[in-house]
Design a protein around this nucleic acid. Structure first.
Length: 645
RNA sequence: GCUGCCGUAGCUCAGUGGUAGAGCACCUCCUUGGUAAGGAGGAGGUCACGGGUUCAAGUCCCGUCGGCAGCUCCA
């Protein structure tokens, strides 16, 4: 064994340091300035202190106050501050884990009673008092015996359990103390003291379990967040408010798109507005399918258990399936469309000339989801995939995957999404098939991603039970990522259904199957669209594209003539016939987020014009009906999603 | 599913053991008003459902259903 460890710096440079060096030693070797500025480091992706010992090769990033990762340090310290306040107010509270997260931090506690909102307010108040005192973090390393004694003194039984594991793993045990107020076993690093957390806030409390085990010890988790400045914290809180305003579960019913009811938990009811959006999306995708040589199919919702045994779903997916009994037979409601597609493929003989055979299906699938994970359209129990199954030869895989990636780009762009991120998910623990097939499938997907020059991320172990996949995430206007499309390779299903094609050599061969969805689920995608646009759907998707607002009843006939002309031009138009004043009608149309609000009074009726109030702009004044109609028709045709001004 | 919180009119919510409430929306009437809420009146309730405690339950207790947040981030 070598006595040196090779340490890779963020810029790719490699340093050799003696084993058992600390991160601080490494920083010093890079430069004394950096060593002085260092507040912690990231060792092999994990946040740790400068005292971390280096036992082998790895990657290091030194954190200074200027690093992005410094925010994680601040938040981790804020978690300690939270725990300190909790221990003062609830001396019997036992500590669990308290890490920083992407949004802030949390700390888990074992307490007799759940925290009330009043408790949280008191805890936050106490945190502010402690922060005012400064109370520097002081690191102290201990051997196992001392650490055990210290944890016993503090009454941290759970931590003692965890410490034993750490000692076993050869870790150095360290404590961080803040005066005589608080002490916690912790790897670090931390800010200077409780006074060095510029802005923080307690967000909420919820249930959790020791080490995430639902059969284990119940705990109470307090969530908070922290930032470098009050301004950034305020901005964060505003973003949360904005997201709340855009919540599709509120906007959807308010805009008459869809609703949920107790009689069908997890299953959306689609109203007229939602169906218009749905149809537009479906027709657009259908157009793409036609361009790309797909055939559209539809397979049954209910099929026998035998089919699902054959496909492997019965063994691998049963907990998520719905079953029905009739004629002493058991049937399952389809959770996926692939077996049905395989039945169609297998129903006739195929030549290599037929391949690739692309079968598309807007397939309505049902998956039982635990009640706690349901979330409006984002996580429903019944949803419609814009699914397709491509049967091809192994040689055709890359080209087909590339075509799917291209379709993804084209489709997402049409909905106003330009930022797409791909992740490759590799073999999961629960899987079917031989390792060699998995090797081949993973290599094929990697090849396509490289060929498309895509900078993808890796989700190791997150593949489907029948094959690896590429998941596609899009970023919305609030910077949130949504998983939509997926491209999955499958060497199993053709095997199980004994699917073949006749090759050039006259022999039967096994086709490869690619499962792919672009939008993912119609339901979820519409939910994403609603949140992304805050309900202000582009003209091509808007259930009502223009509304005529008569100043008085006398203009209703004129408004109806205009509406008729626009309807004949292919637009979706309404007339507001209610007896309200114009101000109220505008307010209402605006609330419904209708793109074009067209005011008609005596003057407009006289001149064959409408006064245009665009959704995103100011009153434009009177414009000829023909011109306005043309503008909307053009926007519709172009699927424009720019603001309407 | 588990933990916590919640469930009162279509929506947003008040009502803390003693006659079921408000605003908005809806309907009718008056008003026909030129750019983000005109006025008056009316109708609308098995207080999620089931059980219990009590002279009395929207309110307290138990259960069920449904909703929301969290349950992955590992000192």
């Amino acid at each position: 064994m070598s006595a040196v460890a090779r340490v890779t710096l963020p810029d790719g440079k490699v340093l050799e340091v003696p084993k058992n060096s600390t991160c601080a030693d490494v920083a010093m070797q890079i430069g004394p300035g950096l060593a002085r500025a260092a507040v912690g480091c990231v060792w092999n992706g994990e946040l740790t202190s400068m005292e971390q010992r280096i036992h082998g090769d790895g990657r290091i990033a030194i954190i200074t106050k200027k690093s992005e990762d410094y925010l994680r340090v601040v938040r981790h310290s804020a978690a300690h501050l939270l725990a300190a306040a909790v221990r003062e107010l609830f001396p019997k509270a036992q500590l669990g884990f308290g890490p920083p997260t992407d949004e802030g931090f949390y700390y888990d506690f074992v307490v007799e009673e759940p925290f009330t909102p009043d408790d949280l307010a008191a805890i936050e108040k106490r945190m502010r008092e402690l922060a005012k005192k400064g109370l520097p973090f002081e690191r102290q390393e201990m051997d196992a015996a001392d650490a055990t004694a210290e944890l016993k003194r503090l009454g941290y039984d759970l931590k003692a359990e965890y410490m034993a594991e750490l000692v076993q793993a050869g870790e150095v045990i360290s404590f961080y103390k803040n005066g005589d107020v608080f002490s916690d076993m912790c790897r670090g690093p931390h800010v200077k003291g409780f006074g060095s957390i510029p802005a923080f806030k307690i967000m909420s409390a919820s249930g959790a379990y020791w080490r995430g085990d639902a059969t284990g010890i119940p705990m109470q988790r307090i969530h908070g967040t922290a930032f470098f400045s009050q301004e950034e914290l305020d901005l964060h809180l505003e973003r949360i408010e904005e997201a709340k305003k855009r919540d599709h579960r509120k906007l959807g019913p308010a805009l008459d798109l869809f609703s949920f009811h107790d009689v069908a938990p997890g299953f959306p009811f689609w109203h007229k507005g939602g169906m218009i959006v749905w149809r537009e999306i479906e027709n657009f995708v259908r157009g793409e399918l036609e361009q790309r040589g797909y055939q559209e199919i539809r397979t049954p919702l209910v099929m026998t258990d035998e089919l699902w045994r054959k496909s492997g779903h019965y063994d691998n997916y049963r907990e998520n399936m719905y079953f029905v009994e009739k004629d002493d037979r058991s049937f399952a409601v389809k959770p996926m469309n692939c077996p049905g597609a395989c039945i169609i493929y297998g129903s006739e003989l195929h030549s290599y000339r037929d391949l690739p055979l692309r079968l598309g299906e807007f397939g309505f699938v049902h998956r039982y989801e635990l009640s706690g994970v349901l979330h409006g359209l984002f996580r429903a129990r019944g949803f419609t995939q814009d699914d397709a199954h491509v049967y091809c030869t192994p040689e055709q895989i890359e080209a087909e995957v590339l075509d799917c990636l291209d379709m993804l780009n084209v489709v997402y762009k049409a909905f106003g999404f330009s930022e797409i991120k791909q992740f490759l998910s590799t073999r999961p623990e629960k899987r079917m098939g031989e390792e060699a097939l998995w090797d081949r499938a993973e290599a094929a997907l990697t090849g396509a991603l490289r060929a498309a020059d895509i900078d993808y991320g890796l989700n190791a172990g997150d593949g489907a039970f029948y094959g690896p996949k590429i998941d596609n995430y899009l970023t919305d206007s609030l910077g949130r990522m949504w998983q939509c499309g997926t491209i999955q390779l499958d060497f199993q299903m053709p095997e199980r259904f004994d699917l073949t094609y006749v090759g050039q050599d006259g022999n039967r061969h096994r086709p490869v199957m690619i499962h792919r969805a672009i939008l993912g689920s119609m339901e979820r995608f519409i939910g994403v669209l609603v949140e992304n646009t805050a309900g202000k759907l582009p003209v091509w998707l808007a259930p009502v594209q223009a509304i005529l607002l008569p100043i008085t009843d006398k203009q209703i006939p004129y408004a109806e003539t205009v509406a008729k002309r626009m309807t004949e031009a292919g637009l979706r138009v309404e007339v507001d016939r209610r007896g309200d004043k114009i101000g109220a009608k505008i307010r209402d149309a605006h609330g419904r987020k209708i793109p074009y609000q067209l005011v008609v009074g005596a003057k407009e009726a006289e001149a064959d014009t409408v006064s245009v109030r665009p959704r995103d702009g100011e009153d434009r004044g009177a414009q000829p009906v023909g011109q306005v109609t043309e503008e909307i028709v053009e926007r519709y045709a172009q699927k424009a999603h720019s603001p309407i001004q």
